[in-house]
């Protein structure tokens, strides 16, 4: 999978559920459809819950990379 260029970045390490999802949602609202948000999430509850909720809101997860104890996701606004 090729590297996708992100239009915005959000580091949600240390942010609890569901605040992390709300922050991601607000950030996505500032983007145009088709633009990409890069998101950093902790493992455990955040990675269990946030991608599910993002999918349910109609966005697309393009890329997921595990980096030690956290995950780097690229999300395309739906």
């Amino acid at each position: 999978m090729g590297e996708v260029k992100a239009n915005a970045h959000l580091d949600l390490r240390g942010v609890m559920c569901p605040i992390n999802f709300v922050k991601a949602k607000l950030k996505l609202e500032t983007l145009e459809a088709g633009e990409v948000l890069e998101l950093v999430l902790d493992s455990g509850e955040p990675i269990q819950n946030v991608p599910k909720s993002i999918k349910e809101e109609g966005h697309k997860i393009l890329e997921v990379k595990k980096e030690g104890e956290h995950f780097r996701l690229k999300i395309q606004k739906g």
Partner: peptide, 12 residues
């Protein structure tokens, strides 16, 4: 599958 490992994290 892209091998992203989210499913193994999501599975409780």
């Amino acid at each position: 599958c892209t091998g992203c490992t989210i499913c193994s994290e999501a599975c409780k």
